[in-house]
């Protein structure tokens, strides 16, 4: 029977990094639900079609909205949807269920950093859910909705880098906000509120340039823009060269700030933590 066991360890001479291992397991866990995933992605894709047609009607009378051509805009809409799917909400819903049921005790009796393990899980799920969502978005988008491919390989690389930073920003944000559940223990309100706020301020619904003055100023400063608006604008070539570098730097800065905030907030939450159940 020991051969069964060794099978998983062939070629392994040392343990792999615990967070990488955790992300891998989450990835495999996510694959188990691929049928549900396909249904989910397909249904939400309807949303893209609706927004696409709204904008098409708007562009019938005008060639340009805040510097976006119709081609830019349809690319924006489709990509924004894809990115939203890529950077899932897993971290929030996973934290919610473990905090509510007290399952979190099992996470915490292990030598794992709480924030780190939530990010690792989120990464594992995002690879499955996000890659599938993104692939579907790009295929359907390029084939049927006429979105434009990136201009160059360099631009594509910057886009991917910006996307990764955006993933970290969103995960850390959701982590910080989800910590509120340690005080309220019921997370539905928190989840809905954060989702709405992040949707708007990230530019997932409407490009930030099109927002009313006051909101635009707020949205340009806050970290949420780094989730959707920054990567899409890099993809579209609306920010390139020094501007692109500046935007990426801003994203990186927010990642650092949020990571510090997350660890401070976690320390506070931990002092107060009440593990539910006996």
């Amino acid at each position: 029977m020991s051969t069964d066991l060794v099978r998983g360890w062939v070629g392994r001479t040392r343990p792999i990094n615990k967070y990488v291992s955790l992300a891998t397991i989450s990835f495999r866990q996510a694959i188990n639900y691929r049928a549900a995933l396909f249904v989910n992605i397909s249904l939400t894709f309807l949303w893209v079609i609706v927004v696409y047609h709204l904008w098409r009607a708007a562009y019938a009378g005008r060639p340009l909205f805040a510097g976006y051509t119709w081609e830019d805009m349809r690319t924006y809409v489709v990509l924004a949807y894809g990115i939203n799917a890529l950077v899932g909400w897993r971290i929030g819903s996973l934290m919610m269920s473990t905090i509510r049921t007290g399952e979190i005790a099992i996470d915490m009796v292990r030598p794992l950093d709480y924030c780190g393990s939530q990010l690792a899980r989120s990464a594992g799920y995002s690879v499955v859910e996000g890659m599938l969502g993104m692939a579907l978005t790009l295929v359907v988008g390029i084939l049927f909705l006429g979105i434009r491919p990136p201009h160059s390989a360099g631009e594509a690389a910057l886009f991917i880098l910006s996307l990764l930073l955006g993933f970290l920003i969103k995960s850390l944000l959701v982590f910080c906000i989800s910590l509120i559940m340690f005080w309220t223990t019921n997370g539905f309100g928190v989840m809905l509120a954060q989702e709405a706020v992040i949707q708007v301020l990230s530019g997932a619904l409407v490009p930030i340039a099109l927002m009313p003055e006051a909101l635009r100023v707020v949205a340009s400063v806050l970290p949420m823009r780094g989730i959707v608006a920054t990567p899409v604008n890099i993809y579209l070539g609306h920010s390139s060269g020094t501007d692109a570098a500046l935007q990426l730097g801003l994203q990186a800065l927010w990642v650092v700030v949020l990571a510090v905030l997350a660890s401070l907030a976690w320390r506070r939450a931990f002092r107060r933590v009440e593990i539910q159940g006996g």
Binding site: P15, L22, I25, I106
Partner: peptide, 29 residues
Amino acid sequence: RTQLWWDIPVTDSLRLLGDIYAVPAATFR
């Protein structure tokens, strides 16, 4: 409560725990 991952074969849960605690492969085996 279980500390095993629900949808994953038991071996893999055990291996992940080996990684989490950084147990050297020979000792783990």
